[in-house]
Design a protein around this nucleic acid. Structure first.
Length: 209
DNA sequence: GTTATGATAC
DNA sequence: GTATCATAAA
């Protein structure tokens, strides 16, 4: 088990203590940390694409495809590890809202979409990825980016809902982090590509004409 | 929702 | 020169 909670790197390994003298509060959860960025952005009306009493939708700051949104609950749920059966209806609602956003903003795009969660997220606050399957974006730059959406590292929303329904919680297979190191493989035709630039060139082949 | 950067490999 | 990899950030 090499996985860890998002945004909780071990402070004991740092050579210098983070002395700032500016933050006298010394909170346990530093909101200035990069891993807390979602908590801030989701509150910003400027970024909200959709909002209701339970969830809010924002555009991914670094979209890995032409359409890439995040559905977040207002409730403070750190990650899938904190999800229980009491969140079942919320998860279903998040999925429904994701489908609505697709319909409202990409209804005539004819692009295929997938809805799901990263098995080991980097950012705090549980978020449902709603992403078109073109993966045509300058923000898609490395193997981790690709494999996090195109291996079992990407957990289908429907599978998560079913898991919570049947087991009452979400479990992640051991070795999931290793999936990020797998060779690059086209999600449409399974062809292996030797590099990101060549993968991107190959993906053009599958664009709708 | 890590990205950005510098070191290292091809 | 180009692409990947390891590391820092607060």
């Amino acid at each position: 088990m090499t996985e860890q909670e998002p945004g909780t790197a071990d402070p004991s390994q740092y050579p210098l203590p983070p002395k700032k003298g500016k933050d006298a509060s010394a909170k346990k959860e530093p909101l200035g940390h990069w891993s807390q960025g979602l908590k801030i952005s989701m509150q910003d009306p400027k970024m909200q694409v959709y909002k209701d009493e339970q969830v809010v939708v924002i555009k991914d700051k670094y979209p890995k495809a032409r359409y890439h949104w995040l559905v977040l609950p207002w409730a403070s749920i750190s990650s899938l590890k904190a999800v229980t059966s009491e969140h079942l209806e919320l998860l279903k609602h998040m999925h429904t809202v994701g489908e609505k956003v697709i319909s409202d903003f990409a209804g005539c795009s004819k692009l295929r979409f997938r809805l799901g969660y990263h098995a080991i997220p980097s950012m705090s606050h549980v978020h449902l990825h709603v992403i078109s399957q073109d993966f045509d974006s300058p923000c898609l730059k490395n193997k981790k980016h690709w494999n996090s959406f195109n291996t079992e590292y990407f957990l289908e929303s429907k599978a998560i809902i079913k898991m919570v329904q049947e087991a009452g919680r979400v479990t992640v297979e051991d070795g999931t982090s290793e999936l990020l190191k797998l060779p690059l493989r086209c999600h449409e035709c399974q062809q292996l590509l030797p590099s990101i630039p060549q993968l991107k060139e190959h993906l053009r082949k599958h664009w709708i004409k």
